[in-house]
């Protein structure tokens, strides 16, 4: 339990860093670090397969996509943009205050435990096997099908968005 608490606090710190960082590349690295800590928490919560998925896809693939997008959209006049962003970025400084207030508010919100009926819960959850592969294949075939559709749609979408028209665009 203690390690979970430490991991959660670390995740919170990296989230704060992601939001408050001025440079986009550093924010992306912060996102990757958050992903990695999330993976560690997921391992501790008995969810090994999903943790591996999260690590390879989110920490790996999405970070690469972000970094390539950022490098393709670097502004031309570097110095001016830096000046502007310093002024704009002061607003992000309020985030720790907002977080502190929210933390205090949530801490004193007592959420009652309405689910202490443990016997019926145990009976109900016996129907679902623990192994992810069996659950995915037997119970969630439609989701697998939808994932295929999503990947096709995503790739068609990216192909469409990046296609240049032969006609002169101006």
């Amino acid at each position: 339990m203690d390690i979970n608490l430490v991991l959660l606090i670390l995740m919170m710190i990296s989230t704060l860093w992601t939001v408050m960082c001025r440079s986009l590349i550093k924010a992306t690295i912060g996102l990757a670090v958050t992903s990695a800590i999330l993976t560690a928490i997921m391992f501790r919560l008995n969810s090994a397969l999903a943790a591996v998925f999260e690590l390879s896809v989110c920490t790996g693939l999405i970070t690469v996509v972000f970094v390539s997008t950022i490098s393709l959209t670097k502004p031309l006049t570097h110095k001016e943009i830096e000046e502007l962003s310093k002024a704009r970025h002061k607003r992000f400084g309020y985030l720790p205050i907002v977080i502190a207030l929210a933390a205090a508010a949530i801490y004193f919100l007592k959420i009652p435990n309405d689910f202490s009926d443990s016997s019926s819960m145990a009976i109900r959850s016996q129907g679902i096997p623990e192994d992810v592969c069996i659950v995915l294949w037997n119970f969630r075939k439609l989701d697998l099908f939808a994932q295929i559709m999503l990947i096709i749609a995503g790739s068609l979408g990216v192909a469409t968005l990046f296609e240049e028209r032969k006609i002169d665009e101006w």
């Binding site: 969810s47 397969l49 999903a50 145990a122 959850s125 679902i128 623990e130 069996i134 995915l136």
Partner: peptide, 8 residues
């Protein structure tokens, strides 16, 4: 206790 379902 429904670890399989949540991972899916």
């Amino acid at each position: 206790g429904m670890v399989g379902l949540s991972q899916s």
